[in-house]
Amino acid sequence: MALTFPNPAMEARPVAIVLRDVGMCYDGETWALRDVNLTVREGEFVSLLGPSGCGKSTILRTIAGLQTVTSGSVEVLGSPAGELFNRRGELSFVFQEPTLMPWRSVLANVALPLELMGVPKRERLSRAMEMLAMVGLDSVANKLPRQLSGGMKMRVSIARALVSNPKLLLLDEPFAALDEITRERLQEELLRLWQRFGMTVVFVTHNVFEAVYLSSRVVVMQANPGTVRAELSIETPYPRSREVIGTPDFMNMVAKAVQLLGD
């Protein structure tokens, strides 16, 4: 049984994602995921925290419809996962790599989701430009991805994910490959965008500090088989700043998460 530390304020919100008894089995014997139950409510910032091999990325991919589950059900924004492909723009995914098309300008990369939704050219370019300005990169709109640093590329990737104004943003260890300073800046940026747009965020990470600092709720996972071990509500109010990192409350939460990971 998973331990839960519920946050009453969140209980009232409508449900965005429900995973019921989800199991994932590749070879008929070993279960990558087993008995995963998870509910994410609208506007939450939920982190999936766990060691590698615990299936946290797999959960994200099933929510995105990139993988289908072996047992159980996954419901996203009121539809079974996977059917969201037909409702383009409502769900976006940010990968660990920026995955920008190297042959397209920064602006054209950001405009891609709108292009696929059939938004007219002028509108999509102006919306992409707006989004780029939002992440502070409007000055490099016409450059090619290779002319950008790693952190800038990731910011472009986030801008691309947000340009369609999605209800749900999934991020799979987006900052894992970045240096510490860039990562901190992008964490701030992500929090700012989340508070501005209010989308539901599911964020996969193996970094305890990152999870506790960003999230309204941290879902701690364990491996073999991958399942939810506990859920921690992080009560620290938003907007958060780096100052909270030193506070006893914050350190308590980190210690708790570390302990849950270690058990």
């Binding site: 992440v135 502070g136 450059k143 640093s149 952190g151 860039t182 800046r185 700043s241």
Partner: peptide
């Protein structure tokens, strides 16, 4: 401060990794 206002932020972005000046 790393995260202050809009003006300060833009400055921060430009300093991220290999700089690409305007």
């Amino acid at each position: 401060p790393v995260h202050t206002d809009a003006a300060g932020q833009e400055h921060e972005w430009a300093g991220d990794g290999a700089a690409v000046p305007d």
